[in-house]
Design a protein around this nucleic acid. Structure first.
Lengths: 233, 233
DNA sequence: ACCGATAAAAAGTCAGACTTATTCGTCACA
DNA sequence: TGTGACGAATAAGTCTGACTTTTTATCGGT
């Protein structure tokens, strides 16, 4: 699921970007555009465009007479979906997953509260549909089906909140949930308690009970955090 | 305080970027690299680099034989500091400010709770220092001094949380606070209650009282939200 | 009305020449 | 010996023009 896709530019970016986020070049390292162009066997024009994009992500800084300097991780645009994907694919995946799960635990309860106030009838319907889909796939090792509905559920919540900043975290949540299912251990069926919470949350939103929606989501994200603690204590 | 700064590339970006985020080109509009290059009187190389950066922000999409298509706002990387700055400088500043304040209300309480657990002794000291600075500037129309310490205070909280996703929101919070002081109405001195809350928060973090820190921060952000409701009901 | 060949359009890529800013080393001077 | 100014080296920045590739629209044939 690589977004960058076509073009020489994209292919170079998909190699160099992950290398940087993986920390292969320590902060302060200096790269030269010409050398990079040679290494990737592309023209300087293409290489310059790549560097410009990396610069806009604050992964590097380009200065005359000095070269392309790799910036420390604290400078990176860690909310850039591309950067998130690169880091999730790299070595510090666990730390990244942890950061994002904590972020979820802050955002989603508030988003759910807002969703309970703002969700349209259609969104409420989607929500219950997703919850039912989760129930239907909660037993018998149908993990993929479960994941699909789980992702859709949280996307609807975030969108229905009516806050664009929340809505745009849908992809991040999708990555985190997918990561849990695919990479990390999850041999057995999902926790029945979590499934129930989702069903109740759908009900709470439909009933316009903001406080309850918020509390239920807090329990869901709390579960996600505990899951991480069990995996890496 | 424009970050992009030097170079033809940066100047073009600082013109075209805000135009797009301001909605001057409706979603689906098609721009042509050559025409843009003519308009800004730069070479195609420079223009291509600008387009590439805009593309990495998901503001536009470049396709062969079609041109550079402006994407709908729901696709934009709204967490990109550059995009945030452009939007805050544009027409839908109020909506943006509202979104960001809601975001704060979700993030900061959790961050404060974590800060109470993780803050170093040094960070605790900085916190009280900032709080004292706020007190000292809370009367007599010393708004700039107050803002300075307010921004520093919230930065320390976010950093001390130990979560990089939270820490990187420091700039966003700074923009929001600065916006409130500079653009929006704030003739009088800041609310004394808010000042007190900050002092208490510094104490709570030093005392490692996570629950109290979280609750106090919730009151602070709640106040920020109410302020917005008063300004634009 | 449908389908395939063809032509046009715009981005993508490349190569090379030239410009400009920055840094570093050197040399003269205090 | 230290310091500051000057100059050379360097790597990014910019421009130009030619060529390639992909996609779309048009046109002609069935």
């Amino acid at each position: 699921m690589s977004t960058t896709g076509r073009g020489l530019h994209g292919r170079v970016l998909d190699t160099l970007g992950p290398e940087i986020t993986a920390g292969e070049y320590p902060p302060g390292s200096v790269l030269r555009t010409d050398e990079l162009a040679q290494r990737f066997d592309v023209s300087r024009s293409v290489m310059r465009e790549v560097v410009r994009v990396l610069e806009s992500m604050h992964l590097v800084e380009s200065r005359r007479r000095v070269g392309v300097t790799v910036l420390p991780a604290c400078e990176w645009n860690v909310y850039d979906p591309q950067v998130i994907r690169w880091r999730l694919a790299g070595a510090d995946r666990p730390r990244q997953l942890r950061s994002l799960t904590v972020l979820r635990s802050a955002i989603e309860p508030v988003a759910a509260g807002l969703a309970a106030r703002n969700a349209t009838a259609e969104q409420c319907a989607e929500l219950t549909e997703c919850a039912l889909g989760m129930v239907a796939n909660s037993r018998g090792h149908k993990l993929e089906g479960y994941l699909f509905h789980d992702v859709a559920f949280h996307r609807v919540i975030l969108t229905a909140s009516g806050n664009e900043m929340f809505a745009r975290l849908g992809d991040v949540v999708a990555e985190v949930l997918a990561g849990r299912t695919h990479h990390d251990v999850m041999f057995e069926d999902p926790d029945p308690a979590a499934v129930t919470l989702h069903v109740q949350l759908a009900e709470a939103v439909r009933a316009r009970d903001a406080a309850r929606a918020e509390e239920l989501t807090r329990e869901i994200t709390e579960g996600a955090l505990q899951e991480l603690d069990i995996l890496a204590p």
